[in-house]
């Protein structure tokens, strides 16, 4: 086998078949995919299906705590989980730039396999295309996912009501900062790694103790601030949080101080925000803390009636300020 991806790997001919057979299939050994038919045939039972798709482009492909493969599985699994669905099947489509080392591709495929095993989902269909050098940046992955939602479960961004508690599952800003650290080539004395993780099992545990979880959302791009604003807007409520309840790891704070970034706006890939009826908030919180991806869970605030569409934060010194959506891109700044 060659060392790098060639255009011929995308030709549909012999090399394409070899690539699928040698590199892809060994990672996704399941009866549905193994048939190699034009489409996967699935048997689904449930009240309602959840179906989502997302594309993953990340530079660099590999970073502390994960890689584009783990991200592509977890991101789509989490999107499903945030509707309360139990994720079942994924499809994955790869756009590969000519010249990508096969070893890198293999590493990413193995990482996808591990993430899908952890999330207990199966990759049942896939596609690869190879494009000329410069037409893509090394590797783009698109994953789509299907899950089933139990009868009676209604979790949506528009469901928050005044009085509900807002729970955050752990420390913020780790994924975005880990990527920046890699990109900027920063050295570290402490470990900073992406929090990228599948959250479906955590959600399943939460649903065991409460049927009054109103909203779930993973604060990815745009960070916690953006997610809270989305929820406040969709539900036409206000949200008040307390700065002191937010937890940020020391190294992550260090990077933010140096580069002038606000951690509230930095992306996460393994955290969730839950809006829960006050009656159930303690039991949900306790259940979350028992799960490895929820050990740092905290009630960070509550939903209020007014002003609608706004998020307020009680600051560490006791003042109050608006937390707005992120506008534009966060760039390292000097002022």
């Amino acid at each position: 086998m060659e060392d790098n991806i060639l255009l011929a790997h995308g030709s549909g001919g012999k090399l394409s078949h070899q690539l699928i057979k040698d590199l892809f299939l060994p990672q996704y050994d399941n009866p549905v995919l193994a048939k190699l038919d034009d489409a996967a045939k699935l048997r689904l039972t449930g009240d309602c299906l959840a179906y989502t798709t997302d594309s993953y482009v990340v530079n660099p492909l590999f970073f502390k705590g994960g890689d584009i493969g783990r991200l592509a599985v977890c991101g789509t699994v989490n999107d499903l989980a945030m509707t309360g669905a139990k994720p079942l099947y994924l499809t994955a489509s790869f756009i590969i730039e000519e010249g990508l080392p096969l070893a890198a591709l293999k590493k990413i495929l193995i990482s996808m396999k591990q993430a899908s095993e952890e999330a207990e989902v199966e990759v049942v269909a896939g596609d690869t295309k190879v494009v000329e050098k410069g037409a893509a940046d090394k590797l783009f992955i698109t994953t789509s996912g299907i899950g089933v939602i139990e009868k009676g479960l209604n979790i949506a961004g528009a469901n928050a009501k005044a009085g509900d508690r807002v729970i955050l599952s752990g420390d913020i800003a780790e994924h975005g900062v880990a990527i920046l650290v890699e990109r900027e080539g920063m050295e570290l004395d402490v470990e900073i790694k992406s929090d990228v993780a599948p959250l479906n099992h955590l959600v399943a545990q939460m649903l065991k103790v409460s049927r009054k979880i109103r909203c779930l959302r993973d604060p990815t791009r745009g960070g916690l601030a953006t997610t809270l604003n989305e929820l406040a807007t969709q539900s036409e409520v206000g949200i008040r949080i307390e700065e002191d309840k937010l937890s940020i790891k020391e190294g992550v704070r260090g990077v933010c101080e140096i580069l002038g970034l606000d951690p509230l706006y930095v992306g996460n890939e393994g955290k969730l925000v839950a809006v829960v009826d006050p009656e159930d908030s303690q039991s949900v919180l306790e259940k979350m803390r028992q799960h490895p991806y929820g050990t740092g869970a905290q009630i960070i605030g509550e939903v209020v009636e007014k002003p609608t569409g706004r998020v307020f934060m009680k600051t560490s010194i006791g003042g109050s300020r608006i937390v707005d959506m992120l506008a534009g891109e966060q760039l390292p700044r000097i002022c």
Partner: peptide
């Protein structure tokens, strides 16, 4: 200084 401005807002100092 603008950094003062931002921190005055960020910590909600004006209203205190």
């Amino acid at each position: 200084c603008g950094t003062h401005t931002v921190n005055i807002f960020r910590y909600g100092i004006k209203e205190l």
